[in-house]
Nucleic acid binder design. Sequence first.
DNA 1: GTTAGCACTCAATTCTTGTGAGTGCTAATA
DNA 2: TATTAGCACTCACAAGAATTGAGTGCTAAC
Lengths: 344, 344
Amino acid sequence: MELSERKKKILEVIIRDYINSAEPVGSRTLSKRCNLGISPATIRNEMADLEELGFLVQPHTSSGRIPTQQAYRFYVDEIMEIRKLEKMIRTDIHRGFLDYNNELGTTISHTAQVLSKLTNYTSVILAPRITNYNCKHVQIIPLIKNRVLMVAVTHEGIAKNVEMSLSSEVSEVMALKLSNVINGFLKNSFLKDMNSGFLDQIQELSQEESNLVREIIPHLKKALFEDASEIHSTGLTNLFNYPEFSDVEKIKQVVNIVQEKQVLSEILTGNESGKVVHIRIGNENDNENLKDFSIITSTYELDGEMMGAFGVIGPTRMNYDNVSSVLNYIRNELNLHISNLLMK
Amino acid sequence: MELSERKKKILEVIIRDYINSAEPVGSRTLSKRCNLGISPATIRNEMADLEELGFLVQPHTSSGRIPTQQAYRFYVDEIMEIRKLEKMIRTDIHRGFLDYNNELGTTISHTAQVLSKLTNYTSVILAPRITNYNCKHVQIIPLIKNRVLMVAVTHEGIAKNVEMSLSSEVSEVMALKLSNVINGFLKNSFLKDMNSGFLDQIQELSQEESNLVREIIPHLKKALFEDASEIHSTGLTNLFNYPEFSDVEKIKQVVNIVQEKQVLSEILTGNESGKVVHIRIGNENDNENLKDFSIITSTYELDGEMMGAFGVIGPTRMNYDNVSSVLNYIRNELNLHISNLLMK
DNA sequence: GTTAGCACTCAATTCTTGTGAGTGCTAATA
DNA sequence: TATTAGCACTCACAAGAATTGAGTGCTAAC
């Protein structure tokens, strides 16, 4: 799929133009914009070639051309580059983060806001998640009757709540004892290896106590391994301003996606490419509802381990340039900031 | 504002019809539907009167009439009644609640789902809130460095998390001690009366310890008294099917409302009327963005104390009958269910 | 290989016309 | 006096016709 330099240039200009205007691009307008000094007729020939190669389509005969998803993919892979943001914007973002330097939760929702503001699309962000290996400490707190709250804390200092009903009422003293049993195990082993077998090794537990622990463990595992983390989203209405969303059906699609936290979370974490900024265009999305959208995601880390993900949802006619650059920068800022917040 | 029985009847039929069809109602169609045996001409005269009285308007000369907000208010106050739901629906709802009988959180989100499904509008529900007087117990859990998590538990068994940074690192032992100090106070007094003065009465605290408690108290108060409770919403896209929402601007309005958790929470809890089911129609809403919508809310209680609120947002052309009846029934179910879940 | 010229296409816009559901008014009726 | 039939009038809406304009492909000349 080798394109001549000129074809490449023409394709680039068409894509850029279409991303801006959402209008099919014709040869006349193009010849003015593209400073190659070639006439509309020549451009028409080149465009016909590009159409044959699958990069362009005409909404109808005798209209201008619009880029295909293949064209966007080519643009993303071969043409565009992740830019460094303007100095002013960089310092703006940086200062913004400093204002939210106390709370993990507010940092996360602040990030979502910055993202949607800078890109004018819809942003989503997944709060730090609990990983397989990092559960450090749990605490059982009696609520009422046979209901208890379990708080699990990771090595990174992230807490998660699990509420549950047990088979009998739990006193404060009992809660403390149960916590201690589980924590004793966690000191030496990983949560994933925890099964009810370890109880046999502990002599001083009454029948009731070990029953309770047996009830608790599945809840703990489920909460940590299966439950979706909290997810934030802002700028949903940003999308409604784009002409491709004048159709109510399209709006429904995107609203549904953003409300389906579970789906969203899978989308955000599914990055097979291994790239820092991961771009999925239209059909490349597995989710049926996302086939008409593009989504660009990235992740943030702590101490080398992936903690969460964030991204931007927009039309396939997305400003890939800008969004990638923003995501790339935010990623760095977020990493820095979270590490300041949590690291020993 | 005394209307003759006939005028009342005509108005009722017009409103019912318009709520169903969203089409202006004319005298011909009306004379068929309304079994009073009067001719279109007579109806025209009555309609002209009703228009003069402010109950009807014509979108343009020579079209049928549509009800004004004043008409809806009249309908709600003077005509409609809260019905008992059909037996089948009642048992359906009841069984649904039984399936979610273990978790407060799932009960809440289940309620939201039932509401939007039964009404075909958008539902919102406010999770149980922490009230002024019911904080029973707190527990401080060290997270990392100088960060700790505080869990506050109410008498009703509802837990709330607060994360905070303190001025120095907190060990497990220290955390336990701090918890005990605060809990000791809560045993005998209300949280609202807690100020740093009570520390003076406690002799065995080191300087560092009492400093820490002094830092914690404002966080606790803020979290319990000021922070908004969690809020759930479903069925946002239900609204998009109604003809009044074919306009993208309208959609933006409602999406914005539903995303503004803080605003939503104020709307839900603001019930001056003292009625069990509280109806606000169009302009009666304080919030500028809600002027084109109607919202019907109710509350749920535990042991006589208001715990949370829920409601339905829809067009002013809302099926007030049905929604009120549903809310009324759900309220009872929810009260029953939560009391089973939490009461001693 | 490039370009000017030309006939052709087709969505979008504007204008026209017809249709129908609705009205208000007046005069006849019970 | 309240009701109704009759009639002329209004106006949104739909369907069709005419116009416009940005764009195309093709051919022949440069």
